[in-house]
């Protein structure tokens, strides 16, 4: 076919170039536009307005807002931002559009409540969101569990936390183990053992990958805090006996403190610097409160939300 071959080739190349080029440009435009996009979102700050404008396709619109909320959080989190002003409005719109979107309450409360940079640091908003969720979904015991979490870890109102967990334990499908935890909560509020039990609860019951991962990280952080506490006690003992700081783990081992170099939950050896215990990679280890280098902020951790 004379003259058809080259034409096909030229236009096939043009098609591919165009497609590849536009995909690259979309990424550039996206990088430029997150702020602009969010302004659009804010332009309709009312869930009712969005509902009307959704023309009855509220399920779909809810899904869109849900995606926006997750993307918003992921994007901000990726940048290490400490301000998440739009997280609550987005979640509020999402859950008003689809009050039965349970993952939105779970995800939302977790990331609203946690302190920056792991979250928005707005535990009262998280409570409001969960209470909205509970009134729309009175049979979801996990919403009470999350409520208990927010009270326990962020607001530190152990009585309210105990009440919420008690609820969760009594509901159909609810985990009865929670009853025991709820019972000890009031007395032992704030200790690592209770925290561990609570996070184990989430870890074992949560199907949502992001939230499971979050619980896993919390558990690792608790492990770390416990290990570091033990190590620090040993070092203090060493100091009392010798009157100086130990120089290395080997020296500690030689003096009868352990037999090997201690390893943190990330798989790295703990550092022993001027008598302080430090984790090797604090930048990838969120939620830990012990073993941080002096002045180091808790890390934002690896991306929590898939971007």
């Amino acid at each position: 076919m004379k003259s058809r071959g080259p034409v096909t080739l030229v236009f096939a190349v043009l098609t591919l170039l165009g497609l590849a080029g536009q995909a690259l440009l979309v990424r550039k435009v996206d990088a430029l536009r997150p702020e602009a996009t969010l302004e659009e979102v804010l332009y309709i700050p009312s869930a009712k307005a969005v509902k009307r404008m959704g023309l009855g396709y509220t399920g779909l619109v809810a899904d869109i807002y849900w995606t926006r909320a997750v993307q918003y959080f992921g994007r901000k989190h990726g940048k290490g931002s400490t301000r998440y002003e739009l997280l609550y409005p987005l979640l509020d719109i999402t859950t008003s559009l689809d009050p039965n979107l349970v993952p939105a309450y779970e995800f939302g409360s977790t990331f609203l409540a946690q302190r920056p940079p792991q979250g928005a640091g707005q535990p009262e908003k998280a409570v409001a969101l969960l209470e909205k969720g509970i009134s729309a979904n009175p049979n979801e015991w996990k919403l009470y569990l999350h409520l208990g979490f927010v009270y326990y870890f962020e607001i530190k109102d152990y009585l309210a936390a105990a009440r919420a967990l008690q609820h969760a334990a009594e509901m159909p499908g609810g985990n009865p183990e929670l009853r025991a935890i709820a019972g000890t909560l009031a007395q032992h509020g704030g200790d690592l053992q209770t925290s561990r039990q609570l996070w184990m609860m989430v870890y074992q019951n949560e199907k949502q990958a992001q939230l499971r991962k979050n619980a896993e990280r919390h558990l690792a952080a608790i492990d770390n805090d416990e290990i570091v506490t033990v190590l620090e006690a040993a070092i203090a003992d060493f100091r009392r006996r010798t009157g100086r700081d130990p120089k290395s783990w080997a020296e500690m081992n030689a003096n009868g403190y352990g037999r090997t170099v201690p390893i943190d939950p990330q798989g790295d050896a703990y550092l022993l610097i001027e008598g302080r215990v430090e984790v090797a990679h604090p930048e990838t280890f969120p939620f830990i409160t012990k073993g941080l280098p002096p002045g180091q902020q808790p890390s934002i951790g690896p991306q929590i939300v898939v971007q």
Binding site: V7, A12, T15, L16, Q22, V29, L32
Partner: peptide, 23 residues
Amino acid sequence: NLILFNTVYALLYALAAVAGAVL
């Protein structure tokens, strides 16, 4: 930058679609 990128973007997208139409 947005004006520039959007221009290039729209032209490339149109190019791909028109070339596809030709094919």
